[in-house]
Each structure stands twice: as structure tokens, then as C-alpha cells.
């Protein structure tokens, strides 16, 4: 008995750094932000309890909240499927047993490592500026470019292209998934005279469905949380005309520019609910399209 207690104590001792980190840096701030979301708090004085005022204001009077939702959904709707399609396409190209596959994997993964960096966001701004490389290339083929970032109707697409360019992480996961599909299935399909297209949608996609699902959930979460590229490209404003005002940029500005930490906390909780809702939706639909080989019946 004494021994067991001693053993447990040493176990908890080893766990302490993690527990401290978890409670002080994760659970603590989460609960504090939940409390703050029901307050008015300018980060100087004490938080003042306002009940559901922040939430009511958000849904009834804050037009920029609805705008930021529109921009964010627009981004998620395009960036997630396009990045997944790109990742799967490249993974399928690489899944050919090439000897230099390691090199290619590294090359294709590189943008994902760089993509979230400030430097790339700045580079992106240069690329798509009115006299940037993109317009220079277009000029060669006789197309008059626009200011891709300064034009509110095109700016979001520069962000989406950046997202597609960062396909490395889901690609690696797809590649691992493709490697896991038994070759026998394709050989059997070859003997049966199955076309490439049918092999893709009748064998590859269903066999890869758990991986697609995993990537989809991760990408949905990641896309809703997009921040630094939008922040840098729009100079922290979310402009032009709020066209790059993605949710987290709005939240950040409310918190650290306008010092409305209470309202920002409420925004953060709504984002959490939105992400949770979409993730739950993905899980709910998964039983219709995700097949697990070792599933229990």
C-alpha cells in the first residue's frame, strides 16, 4: 500500500511540469477567457460583468462580425478543398516508388515550413502587388494585371493561393495513406480491366477515406484559425475594405488594438463553437463515407 502511494507520488512528480503547463497555460486561460467574455475589460481597469451583452452585440449590432464571418467562410470554403486536392494530387504523383522520393517530399514540404512565416507573407505581398512578379508574368502574355491585394474582390484569393501552396503537411499524410493501400487491390483491378479513373474513385478514394477525413478535420480547424498571412498581407488592418478581415485578425485587433478584451474573448468562444460545429459535422457525416477496415460492427 505504502509502496503504491510512493510509486504514484513519483509518477505525479514527473507529471508536474506538464500539469502546471496544462492548468496555468491552457485550462486557466481558457476559463479566464470564458469569464472575460461576459465582461467589459480594457486590460487596464478591472473587468466589469456585463452578462450576455458582448454576445448580443456581436450577433445583433456588430456588422464587422458578420463581415469577418463572410471572409473567413469564403476562405475556408476554397482553401480547405483546394489544398486537399492539391495535396492528394501531388501525393499520388509521388506514390510511384521513385528513388528520389525523399528529396521530392522535402522539396514539396518546404512551403509548409516556410508558409506560416512572416517573411513569406511579405514575399506574397510583393508577388501580388500591382508591379509584382505575377503581373509582370501576365504582362508577358499580354494580360493587364490588377492590384491583386489592393483590389477587395481579388485579395482573398491571394490568401487562398498561399494556402494551396502550403500543401506539404496533408500531402505527407496522404502519401503515407497511399502507401498503406495494398498493391494487390490494384493488381486485382488491373486483371479486371479497371480504368484509371475507376481505380481512383472505387479503390483509392474509399481506401484513403480515413486519411481524407483526418486531413479534412485538421485543415478545417487550421483554416478557421488563419492569422499571420492575412495580418501581414493586409498590414494588420484586414483591408482593403475588410476583404482580408479573417476572424482571428478581427479578434486580435479587438483585443490588442482597441483593448476590448472582453469582447475579443467572446469572439474567441464563438470561433471555438464554430470550429467545434464544423468538426462535429465532419464526424457526423463520416459514417456515410469513411470506411475503417478494422471497424467493429
Amino acid at each position: 500500500m505504502k509502496n503504491t502511494k510512493a510509486r504514484n507520488a513519483s509518477g505525479y512528480m514527473f507529471l508536474t511540469p506538464w500539469l502546471l503547463g496544462f492548468f496555468l497555460l491552457a485550462i486557466g486561460p481558457i476559463l479566464v477567457s470564458l469569464y472575460l467574455s461576459f465582461t467589459r475589460y480594457d486590460m487596464v481597469g478591472d473587468p466589469r460583468w456585463t452578462g450576455f451583452d458582448n454576445y448580443i452585440y456581436m450577433f445583433t449590432r456588430d456588422r464587422r462580425f458578420w463581415k469577418t464571418l463572410e471572409v473567413t467562410f469564403h476562405y475556408v470554403l476554397f482553401a480547405v478543398p483546394l489544398r486537399l486536392i492539391m495535396a492528394l494530387s501531388v501525393a499520388m504523383l509521388l506514390d510511384k516508388g521513385l528513388r528520389t522520393i525523399g528529396l521530392y517530399r522535402a522539396i514539396f514540404y518546404l512551403p509548409s515550413l516556410l508558409g506560416a512565416s512572416i517573411a513569406i507573407a511579405i514575399l506574397w505581398r510583393q508577388l501580388f502587388s500591382i508591379d509584382g512578379v505575377v503581373n509582370q508574368v501576365l504582362a508577358v502574355v499580354g494580360i493587364q494585371g490588377v492590384g491583386w491585394i489592393t483590389n477587395p474582390s481579388t485579395s482573398i484569393y491571394t490568401l487562398i493561393i498561399l494556402a494551396i501552396w502550403q500543401f506539404g503537411a496533408p500531402m505527407l499524410i496522404f502519401l503515407a495513406g497511399l502507401r498503406g493501400i495494398p498493391r494487390d487491390l490494384y493488381e486485382a483491378a488491373d486483371i479486371d480491366g479497371t480504368s484509371r479513373f475507376r481505380k481512383f474513385y472505387a479503390i483509392t478514394l474509399p481506401m484513403l477515406a480515413p486519411v481524407v477525413f483526418f486531413n479534412l478535420v485538421l485543415q478545417i480547424i487550421e483554416a478557421f484559425k488563419i492569422f499571420s498571412p492575412a495580418f501581414i498581407i493586409s498590414n494588420g488592418t484586414g483591408g482593403p475594405a475588410d476583404s482580408l478581415l479573417v476572424y482571428t485578425v478581427y479578434l486580435f485587433n479587438e483585443a490588442f488594438k482597441f483593448f476590448r478584451m472582453g469582447y475579443a474573448s467572446a469572439l474567441a468562444w464563438v470561433l471555438l463553437l464554430i470550429i467545434g460545429l464544423f468538426t462535429a459535422l465532419a464526424f457526423a457525416t463520416s459514417k456515410y463515407w469513411v470506411h475503417y477496415e478494422n471497424e467493429r460492427d
Partner: peptide, 20 residues
């Protein structure tokens, strides 16, 4: 001739059944 045109069929050791 490709496999499908040889008018043969094959039974694999691993069965190669489509699990889904």
C-alpha cells in the same frame, strides 16, 4: 496484351478483396 485482355483471372494469397 494488358492483364485485362488476357482472359484470365487471378486469386491472390491475400484475397485482395475490396474491403469497403
Amino acid at each position: 496484351l494488358p492483364a485485362s485482355k488476357r482472359e484470365l483471372s487471378m486469386v491472390f494469397q491475400s484475397y485482395a478483396l475490396y474491403p469497403h
